[in-house]
């Protein structure tokens, strides 16, 4: 059921065209941040306005949309955005990773391998990977222009000197196509290897910061590291309490006030599918 009085996808056609232009440029220069005119959205900055603007610009009547928030289909943010698009476009929605053509995500990449033709849209709070290290925006732009990324390695050096390992568990900086330093948005470092040569198109939208960037299919994405301290994705050392997976990324859930806790898959679709398969097998 489509809401009356709205253009398809909420944004007007001119805005969508402007965003598509930014997207084309972003795809042409993988990892490079392209400015765009972020519009007022019917939800606050920080709730995924950048991702929504991108989704609204690429979605068509034949698409099927999946929205996840920290891997889950059933949390407030995911539910609201899914309802929003169902209302303003009338496209079908799904919770199945395999069935979706567009997946908008906040802070996770689905466990199920994505395939060609799918689009993964990330919601990005802070697109600039250097912003904690270099406060001047003009200077960070110059560093990107000159591929001058020694400073990021200084940060990694400091981590190893202080903690013995690189203490970045999410938003772990990556180098795209051997050229641009990119913030992968706050996905866990565990998900970083999935970005490398992914068959699906990856689009990133930062609404408040008004930046769009992209990783085209099959583009190399490498996590920064040192030769003698290679990148290591971190995962809780436990099987999922519900589906028993030893490969998926886990959430730690506190279950009582006596110190009880359990580890469950953060990707709800993946976990549910495995549980159904297990039941069917029994």
């Amino acid at each position: 059921m489509t809401a009356l009085g709205y253009n398809f996808g909420y944004l007007d056609e001119n805005t969508k065209r402007m965003i598509r232009r930014a997207l084309l440029k972003a795809v042409a220069v993988p990892g490079h941040q392209v400015p765009f005119g972020a519009r007022e959205m019917p939800l606050p900055y920080g709730w995924g306005t950048g991702g929504i603007a991108v989704t609204a610009s690429v979605i068509g009547a034949g698409d099927r949309l999946k929205v996840i928030d920290q891997g889950a289909d059933d949390t407030t943010n995911a539910v609201s955005i899914r309802h929003f698009f169902a209302k303003v476009t009338g496209v079908g929605t799904t919770e199945r990773t395999g069935e979706a053509t567009i997946i908008q995500t906040r802070h996770r990449i689905p466990e199920t391998r994505l395939r060609e033709g799918q689009i993964l849209v990330y919601q990005v709070p802070m697109p600039e990977p250097l912003f904690r290290l270099e406060p001047r925006v003009a200077e960070t732009k110059r560093m990107h222009a000159l591929a001058d990324y020694g400073l990021m390695h200084v940060k990694l050096y400091e981590d190893i000197a202080r903690h013995g390992h690189v203490a970045i568990s999410y938003n772990y900086p990556v180098l795209v196509g051997g050229r641009y330093l990119m913030s992968p948005s706050p996905i866990p470092a565990f998900d970083n290897p999935k970005m490398d040569r992914m068959p699906a198109l990856q689009l990133f939208g930062a609404g408040r910061e008004k930046r769009i960037y992209a990783v085209p299919p099959y583009t190399s994405v490498t996590s920064l590291d040192f030769e003698d301290h290679p990148f290591q994705p971190v995962r809780a050392d436990a099987p999922c309490a519900l589906c028993g997976s030893r490969e998926s990324y886990l959430d730690e859930v506190v279950v009582d006030d006596k110190g009880g806790r359990m580890f469950v898959c953060s990707d709800t679709d993946y976990c549910a599918t495995r549980q159904t398969q297990r039941e069917a097998a029994e």
Binding site: Y157, A161, E227
Partner: peptide, 16 residues
């Protein structure tokens, strides 16, 4: 150490 290492890393040193 990081201050001294910065120039090395800027010119491509990648061995901690």
């Amino acid at each position: 150490g990081g201050n001294i290492g910065e120039r090395l890393m800027a010119v491509g040193a990648r061995h901690y």
